[in-house]
Amino acid sequence: MISVSNINKSFGEKHVLKDVSLDIPEGETIAIIGRSGSGKSVLMKHLIGLLKPDSGTVAVDGIDINAISYSELRRVRRNFGVLFQGGALFDSMNSFENVAFPLRTFTQMGEDEINEVVKECLAMVELDDVGPKLPSELSGGMQKRVALARAVALQPRYIIYDEPTSGLDPETSNTIDDLIRNLADRLNVTSIVVTHDMHSVLNIADRAAFIYEGRMHWTGTIDELHRSDDQILKAFVTANEYKIGLS
């Protein structure tokens, strides 16, 4: 359970998040949607304490993550797996080492066990044979899948996806969507998907939270989203559907 209450965040003169509140219940897949620059990525970074709100609180499992020490915060973060926009694979390591990295850093596993877990994770993202390849030798979609394998290696309770399908072709996007849904079903994790891709949202999410100009403009289930007559939300959704229709 993650609850965000009334957070504000400014960068210099720019007020990015304005009194944003959001509850993310256990086991749910929630999509945080909004236009580029609406503040959804900034909200995502607040969930794991990468950014601190100017006011308001973020509580993970009832713990206010901005009131605890850095080492305690790091312990809380281990419940999270994050898939960053560009994958954020460590480019000095090959794919295998990238996935093995959190295991080596945070567990006492032996090499054999690590080997097994990494293979399992790579198989889950359907990339069994990329282990020895460096991130630079992989395509953007493959990088994201390896990064996803890394994000789930420690079996986190929450997985955050930052624009998982942006910059990918529709087919690869579908593959990623399938993976996200499979993971949510199989591992029973809470998924937070930050995206502007409505196609993806409709495919995978239980609920959606729409951020507009830094405010939490609308939240509700996908069914409610379809039925909503909020003009701004409708405009956002139809713009996306138009794009989908074209492709």
């Binding site: 990468l50 790091r74 973060r77 960053f84 954020a88 959190p102 850093t105 955050i160």
Partner: peptide, 18 residues
């Protein structure tokens, strides 16, 4: 700098690493 702009530093942090 590259690690910062490609979010590798954020990735490290999000894993719970200092």
């Amino acid at each position: 700098g590259t690690m910062r702009v490609t979010e590798q530093i954020d990735a490290l942090e999000s894993m719970g690493l200092n």
